[in-house]
Simulated assay, not measured.
Amino acid sequence: MLTLSSSPVLYPLSDRAVISLTGADRAKYLQGQVTCDLDTLAPGDASLGGHCDSKGKLWASFWLANLGEQLLLVVNQSLVERQLPELKKFAVFANTDVEEVSADWQVFGIAGEGLSHWLSHEIDGDNLWQGGILIPVAAEHALLVLPKEATPPELPLGDEQQWRGLMIHAGLPDMSAEHQGDYIPQMLNLQALNGISFTKGCYMGQETVARAKYRGANKKAMFVLAGSCNDDIAINQDIEMQLGENWRRAGTVLSAWQQGEECMLTSVLNKDMDPDTLFRIKGQDDSRLALQPLPYELID
């Protein structure tokens, strides 16, 4: 069963990529590309955010960290091949260098009861540590991004699958390459997680994002489903909902966690879904999933 450890655990993450922006115009340039507001981020601060195409569809969701002289984006590794060229496309007109620097960094999850207390003794108030940065992502959950040569904290080690389950349980989005170009930021609940600024001004895809808010154009949101299944779950696998004696496609798997027959996943579904709706994974007729309460309020 997925539970938060009674003390902090370190989760080495192999599926995270790190993108760096340096140069005098780094913040100004990125401000015109992403949904979050860089003007509010002092050194040591971080934010969830999204990078959209011109139609407002996501190339990537990410965690953005301000290291002072450098900005880092922590993203799902599978997104980089398509996202990085898009992020670099207009950098030639700015004093900004954009590059993938995953080989230079280590990325860890840290989670467990008492994490905030442990951190207060280990890391200064600005979250900068050993040339890297701590990114709070949920209560008693954080990402730790350290230079390759830095020594990670001495904590019990957990596995990557467990961390993925903790992120799903926290209602945090993690999209993969299979979903690039499918969703606007609000469909991954970025507005409810302070990942969208509606006052910062123009950025790529901003008109679509604003229209979804002010005209009620978005009818979908990311939900957490949990239940049982016997076979492996694949990203982008169809999710079906029960309608009487029939089943109808409702969405696809965004991210998933499994332990034995127990499973939990995120999926983008219609916002007006009946909370008692029963779901299953297509091709796994014996699987059964139910909606779980999100740990935050969904807002437009």
Rank of each mutant, 00 (worst) to 15 (best):
I239Q: 03
M187G: 08
L190H: 01
V209F: 00
R164V: 10
E149R: 11
I168L: 10
D182L: 11
D174F: 12
A217Y: 02
L193P: 06
D238C: 07
N218Q: 07
Q186M: 12
Y214Q: 03
Y183D: 07
M175T: 14
Q162Y: 08
L188Y: 07
L166A: 11
L225T: 01
S197Y: 00
C229Q: 09
M204W: 01
Q191M: 07
G227D: 04
G158L: 09
A234I: 14
N189A: 01
G201Q: 05
P152T: 12
L166Q: 14
L193V: 03
E207C: 06
I239H: 03
L157F: 11
S197V: 00
G158A: 13
G205F: 06
M167V: 12
M175E: 13
K148H: 15
V224N: 00
P156K: 14
E207K: 00
P147S: 08
L190M: 11
G244W: 10
G244M: 11
H179I: 03
G216K: 01
C229I: 12
I196H: 09
Q206K: 06
A150W: 08
N236A: 15
V209S: 05
Q180K: 05
E207R: 00
D232F: 02
L157C: 14
C202G: 10
S176Y: 14
K213D: 10
D231K: 14
A212C: 13
E160Q: 12
E207I: 03
L188F: 13
P147F: 11
N230P: 02
L190R: 02
L225M: 02
A210M: 11
Q186K: 05
R164M: 09
P147H: 07
A177S: 15
Y203D: 03
D231L: 14
H179V: 09
G244H: 12
F198R: 04
E178K: 11
Q161V: 11
E160R: 07
A177H: 10
E160A: 12
G181T: 03
I184T: 13
R215S: 03
K220M: 08
I196Y: 07
R164I: 07
G195I: 05
E154Q: 15
A192T: 05
A226P: 02
G171M: 07
A234D: 15
E154H: 13
L243P: 00
M222V: 00
A226Y: 01
E207P: 03
D182Y: 12
D174N: 13
A221P: 05
C202H: 08
D174C: 09
E149V: 14
G216N: 04
Q242N: 12
